[in-house]
Amino acid sequence: MRYLILGAGALGGYFGGRMLEAGLDTTFLVRERRAAVLTKRGLRVTSPKGDIHIDKPPLVKADSLKAEYDAIILGSKAYDLTSAMDAIAPAVGADTAIIPLLNGLDHIEQLQHRFDVRNVLGGQCLISASLDAEGDVRHFNDLDVLSFGELDGSHSVRVGAIESDLAKTRFTAQALDDIELSMWEKWCFIASLAGINCLMRTSIGGVIEASGGSIALKLYDECVAVAESQGFQPRTEARQRGRAALSAEGSPLTASMLKDIQRGSRTEGEHILGSLLKRATSAKIDTPTLEAATVHLRAYENSLANTTQA
Rank of each mutant, 00 (worst) to 15 (best):
Y79I: 11
S251T: 04
P58T: 00
A84E: 06
T254L: 10
R279H: 14
F148K: 01
F171K: 00
T39W: 04
G9D: 06
Q309P: 10
T202C: 12
Q174R: 09
G42H: 05
I5D: 00
I272D: 00
G242R: 06
L258T: 03
I108P: 08
E180V: 13
K66F: 13
L146D: 01
K218Y: 09
P234N: 00
R279S: 15
T294D: 09
E180K: 15
Y3K: 09
L176W: 11
G242W: 04
E21Y: 10
T281N: 13
V120M: 02
H113N: 12
E68T: 12
D144P: 09
R118Q: 14
F15G: 02
L166M: 12
K259G: 10
G269Y: 06
D260C: 00
Q112R: 07
L146G: 00
I208F: 00
L199D: 02
L81R: 07
A87N: 02
A225P: 04
A255K: 01
R266L: 15
T46S: 09
T96E: 01
R170N: 11
D144A: 15
A305D: 08
G149R: 05
R2M: 11
L151C: 11
L6I: 05
F171S: 03
H107T: 05
D63R: 13
T172C: 11
I127L: 14
S64V: 14
R44C: 12
N302A: 14
A210Y: 04
V159K: 09
L4T: 06
A67E: 15
L246Q: 08
L126A: 14
S247N: 03
T27S: 11
D80K: 06
I162F: 08
S214H: 15
I88E: 03
G13P: 01
A97F: 14
E150S: 15
Y14M: 01
C188P: 01
A8K: 07
R118F: 06
G160V: 02
S154F: 07
L102W: 01
R44P: 12
Y3M: 11
S303R: 15
V45P: 04
D86V: 07
P288W: 08
H107G: 04
Q240R: 12
R34V: 05
G13E: 01
A310Y: 08
S214G: 15
D63F: 07
N103R: 08
R44H: 14
F140Y: 13
G205T: 00
L131G: 07
H53Q: 09
P252V: 06
N119C: 09
I190Q: 05
K218P: 06
I215G: 07
D116E: 13
I72Q: 00
D106I: 05
A78Y: 01
S128R: 10
G23H: 05
L219D: 01
F115L: 08
C125E: 00
E21H: 09
